[in-house]
């Protein structure tokens, strides 16, 4: 596989990898790093790439695993600082009131969800993959995907309602 063939193969989903990485890692810089790392790993494996039935799903799985590993090592390492910053933001009621941009608010809600729920929301409601693809990417049964997705959507709804009724009062 030549370099241009490889680029043609990965370009259609490069942004999806990036958005998934950003959903999990939050920081733009780290999401770019993760995307680059996954694509370079894929490039190293390019000889065997033809044997993967679905390269896009495979790359998404690689991205997910890479980011979850990053988060795990972050939790034990000194990068925890980044996260406590966000926690501060969220608990400060004053800041919540100032957060007028409702779109940004939805983003904050998603940030607070458990990782699995973030993943299914990202893959279904943002990227609009079908259930079979999502279950392949996350290595979960389709029913488990639906359960996680339902929980995630309801969690977002709950917080939206809370925010809304707070705004009216």
């Amino acid at each position: 596989m030549t370099q241009s063939e490889f680029v043609n193969l990965v370009m259609p989903f490069k942004d999806k990898l990036y958005r998934l990485a950003k959903r999990l890692l939050v920081s733009t810089e780290e999401a770019e790093d993760a995307t680059q790392e996954v694509l370079m790993k894929l490039w190293d494996k390019k000889k065997g790439i033809g044997s993967y039935r679905n390269v896009e799903a495979f790359a998404m799985t690689m991205t997910k695993n890479f980011c979850l590993d990053r988060l795990k090592s972050k939790q034990s390492g000194n990068l925890k600082l980044v996260h406590s910053n966000y926690a501060d933001d969220r608990t400060s009621l004053q800041k919540e009131v100032e957060l007028n941009d409702s779109l940004e608010w939805v983003g904050r809600i998603m940030e607070g969800l458990p990782e699995q729920q973030k993943l299914v929301l990202q893959l279904r409601d943002v990227e609009q993959y079908d259930y079979d693809e999502i279950s392949e990417m996350l290595d979960m049964k389709p029913t488990a995907v639906r359960v996680a997705l339902s929980r995630a959507r309801k969690a977002v709804r709950e917080q939206l309602i809370k925010k809304h009724s707070y705004g009216i009062q």
Partner: peptide, 18 residues
């Protein structure tokens, strides 16, 4: 806002050249 956010989030692009 929820649906608007989803479609907005899909517009984000990776800018770094690998």
């Amino acid at each position: 806002a929820m649906f608007a956010y989803f479609s907005d989030a899909k517009k984000e692009r990776s800018i770094r050249q690998v």
